[in-house]
């Protein structure tokens, strides 16, 4: 008897079933998308178009309207969810955006803590301690308090890692999150990613270049290519 996958044993964290986004002449093609991602699993998607990457992750979090099919997260269908519950469910997802997502209205520390402070009642001290630990892990001196625009590009990326990994999300959606340089940051990122997966976090890693995940890829991991034809399975190619 064939061995059951993690998704089959525990139910998928993210599931796209024949999901067809509404065609609006830009970004994601109105093809049918199928994907199943179980707890602790990591899926790689190669996509050179930044808009497509961003719209695909929006599709996964129920922000992009779909014409047919279903998109489910933790077993809950985005289309069936009441608005407040949908916002709360998005709070269980850690995201790394390809565009600058830290806003200059607040200091970087508020930007990092904001989603967790919004969605949970975890004491602020506890969140700060965890953020400082993650910050140091990624090479920050602690929790930066300056506005994001005063930080270097690399420090902003570090801050975004801290925000994405903070609070132990159930799903990580990463849009072109890492480059091979600097080596220490690359290794710290992979190490935290592995630690998160061991705790059951599912990972969807979209990148423009497959060289960034070559060292991390293992047999059995799903690889897709996202393009004008939709999501194409690349295992065995």
């Amino acid at each position: 008897m064939a061995e059951k996958t993690i998704s089959q044993q525990f139910g998928p964290v993210l599931e796209l079933i024949e999901a067809r986004p509404v065609f609006d002449e830009s970004g994601l093609t109105a093809a049918r998308y199928n994907l199943s991602l179980g707890p602790g699993e990591c899926v790689f998607i190669e996509c050179r178009d930044e808009t497509q990457r961003s719209q695909f992750t929006d599709l996964c979090v129920g922000l992009l309207p779909i014409g047919d099919g279903k998109v489910k997260c933790l077993g809950l269908d985005w289309q069936q969810l009441e608005e407040r519950r949908a916002w709360a469910l998005r709070g269980r997802i850690g995201r790394f955006f390809s565009t600058n997502s830290l806003i200059d209205l607040y200091g970087t520390h508020i930007n990092i803590l904001w989603p967790r402070m919004h969605h949970t009642r975890t004491p602020t001290k506890q969140l700060v301690a965890e953020a400082v630990r993650l910050g140091i892990r990624f090479g920050l001196p602690g929790l930066p308090t300056q506005v994001p625009s005063r930080l270097s590009v690399l420090d902003r990326r570090r801050a975004e890692y801290v925000r994405a990994f903070l609070g132990g999300p159930d799903l990580l959606l990463l849009e072109d999150p890492v480059a091979l340089d600097p080596k220490e940051l690359y290794e710290a990122f992979l190490s935290e990613l592995t630690a998160a997966r061991e705790k059951g976090c599912a990972v969807l890693w979209l990148a423009s270049d497959r060289s960034v995940w070559r060292d991390y890829w293992q047999d059995g991991m799903q690889i897709f290519r996202l393009g004008d034809d939709g999501l194409i399975d690349m295992r065995g190619v």
Binding site: T57, D58, V61, L63, W87, A88, L89, R90, G91, R92, I93, R95, F97, T99, N100, S101, I103, L105, W114, P115, H118, H119
Partner: peptide, 25 residues
């Protein structure tokens, strides 16, 4: 000015992606 800047830079959409409703926030 602040709200239009956030909207034009797509950061309102980013906040939505993090589960933070801009209306509430």
């Amino acid at each position: 000015a602040e709200m239009s800047d956030l909207t034009m830079r797509g950061q309102m959409r980013t906040l939505s992606g993090l589960g933070i409703d801009p209306f509430l926030g």
